[in-house]
């Protein structure tokens, strides 16, 4: 992962955030991500993110669990070690169902949690820059990636115009890395400007 340069706009209200996101897209800037203190309904739509395929992954994990449980139990009880349990047949499907169900749910749940963590770049000891500490408190933070063609001053003016309460430039690691915020490259050079 490489260090990239961003122009960051901070908003203090959902009502200004939504039109800002919409206009940013319309203006053709590349939104890196939007960091919010709480989940916001419809923001993914506004940002034009595609639907997650987490559920497809979940379905596949569930099928894996189902087949594992079914094949393993039928192999054990018909081929490997047939037992007479209460005179039941060696392939007692109804008796398998609870375990098949459990393994299906287990595989789906654990698999989906791990996949979710991977997609959100979450892991123990791993840090991700979210551009502004108050993104975890009361600010909606929208960084725009600066490319060769981006005019930084123009973006800043655009953000101000869109109702941002705070605009700054920042260089940040885009991926995930092991470490702490204070190790991030010049995370907060200047004293933070806290607007009331």
């Amino acid at each position: 992962m490489s260090v990239k340069k961003f122009v960051v706009g901070c908003f203090d209200d959902e009502k200004t955030l939504f039109p800002a996101v919409k206009n940013t897209r319309k203006a053709g800037y590349k939104i890196h991500d939007v960091y919010t203190p709480f989940p916001i309904h419809g923001l993914d739509h506004a940002m034009g993110l595609r639907d997650t395929s987490l559920h497809t992954a979940g379905f596949i994990y569930a099928l894996t669990g189902t087949t594992t449980a079914l094949t393993f139990m039928s192999w054990v009880f018909t081929k490997d070690w047939p037992l007479n349990i209460g005179g039941k047949p060696h392939f007692p499907l109804p008796a398998f169902i609870p375990i098949v169900f459990e393994l299906t749910v287990l595989c789906a749940a654990v698999g989906m949690v791990l996949t979710f963590c991977y997609l959100c770049q979450l892991a123990p000891f791993v840090t991700k820059d979210h551009f502004h500490l108050r993104a975890t408190d009361d600010l909606f933070v929208m960084p725009i990636e600066v490319t060769d063609k981006t005019n930084v001053e123009e973006v800043k003016a655009f953000f101000k115009n869109a109702g941002a309460v705070e605009v700054f430039e920042k260089e940040a690691e885009t991926g995930w890395w092991l470490g702490r915020y204070d190790k991030a490259k010049k995370a907060f050079e200047k004293e933070e400007i806290v607007t009331a």
């Binding site: 209460g86 005179g87 039941k88 109804p94 008796a95 169902i97 609870p98």
Partner: peptide, 8 residues
């Protein structure tokens, strides 16, 4: 079904 089938 399962409980009845199992206890027989």
């Amino acid at each position: 079904f399962m409980l009845i089938w199992y206890s027989n």
